Simulated assay, not measured.
Amino acid sequence: MTDTVKIPGQTAPAPDALLKVDGLVKHFPIKKGLLRRQTAAVRAVDGLSFDVRPGETLGVVGESGCGKSTMGRLITRLLEPTAGKIEFQGHDITHLGVGAMRPLRRDIQMIFQDPYSSLNPRHTIGTIVSAPFKLQGVTPEGGVRAEVQRLLELVGLNPEHYNRYPHEFSGGQRQRIGIARALALKPKLVVADEPVSALDVSIQAQVVNLLDDLQDELGLTYVIVAHDLSVIRHVSDRIAVMYLGKIVELADRTALYESPMHPYTKALLSAVPVPDPRRRGGGSERILLKGDVPSPIAPPSGCRFHTRCWKATERCKTEEPPLIALAPGRQVACHHPENPPGEASGASGAVPVEIGKPVPAKEAEEPEEAEQPEEESEESRESEEE
């Protein structure tokens, strides 16, 4: 599906890797004074390493400000990385200039988060969607207008709206226009920066299903950035959890949701609302993290999550945990992971008791003690009736 080129002096990427990121770093300098000297830096992305295989969807989740959107713009080379390496189909594109990146823009596209600000209000929909053809000098079969109308119909819009302006469309329709523009040149990799966060809940499902259908039809590869865990679970094959500029866990979707290993991942999943009242409180406890997210200007030493983690030790404060494989397809950056492989079922069952407050644990014991007198009272009543 993809043509890989071997670069002399570089380690060849995995044969099935379309995108390979190694040690990606992006620091935004903070300058003060008349001489505009750099006094500090915002460490938005601070060492990311992962790969994306052809045809799969990698979901990236985390709190606001953890560097998800910055990571997406670095992958598409809309931002210049401070350090690290980005390989696409075996080519090192980390520091390519504008001219050298232009041919690759056909294969790497981005869907922006805000459908209101990502479309030029002075241009018609036909001009917006046809812009990639003009910039790349591509003339599709049947003409540009016919191809744009086909793309509009592909994303669920009326082809007759070719001459309308963005303000005449709703938020969901504008996002569909952004999707049509991103798919105009049939890219191989699409980075979607929270594609449904600005849409109504009733529209989110339609756009998510549209992305799934287009992936099956066109063979696309997605990197979807989102903070909605339910959306990520529906569309992703693998999920990367970010915290303060770093990936703390990278795992398969099913394994991550069934048995999260990093405490931060467990806290995120505990916040997912359960719509079925019969399933609420069924062994899962709500984990309330204390304190605020530390500043990316001066992140904590050691493990960056230790200031809010209930399992933190002195080792966590001084030694930064590396992102290592604890199980097949599971990479975790934690000194004291949850549900470690090979742990006995009895030991794993004691973990939620440590996570929750003492009150839920006592409540879990009280019903067992309360059941005994109730059973004895029923037996005594039956004997009295006889």
Rank of each mutant, 00 (worst) to 15 (best):
S117I: 05
S270E: 09
G349K: 12
E153T: 09
E314P: 00
P340T: 04
V42R: 07
L151P: 01
E194G: 07
L288D: 14
K317D: 06
L189Q: 08
V45I: 03
I93C: 08
E378N: 04
A184Y: 01
E56C: 10
G178N: 09
L250R: 02
P166D: 02
L19D: 11
L210I: 08
D16N: 15
K85P: 04
A312D: 05
K311Q: 11
R43S: 00
M110H: 07
L323V: 02
P360L: 09
S230T: 13
K6S: 10
V60H: 03
P341E: 08
A312L: 04
A344G: 13
T57K: 01
L58Q: 02
P358T: 08
D3A: 10
I75K: 07
F88L: 06
E382Y: 05
D3F: 06
Y243M: 10
D114H: 04
D200G: 09
L288P: 00
V52W: 03
L35Y: 09
I128T: 06
C316D: 10
S118T: 11
T11I: 14
S197I: 13
R181F: 03
P277T: 11
V231Q: 05
Y257N: 05
V351R: 13
S348R: 14
G219T: 12
S348H: 05
L78N: 11
E363N: 14
T39I: 15
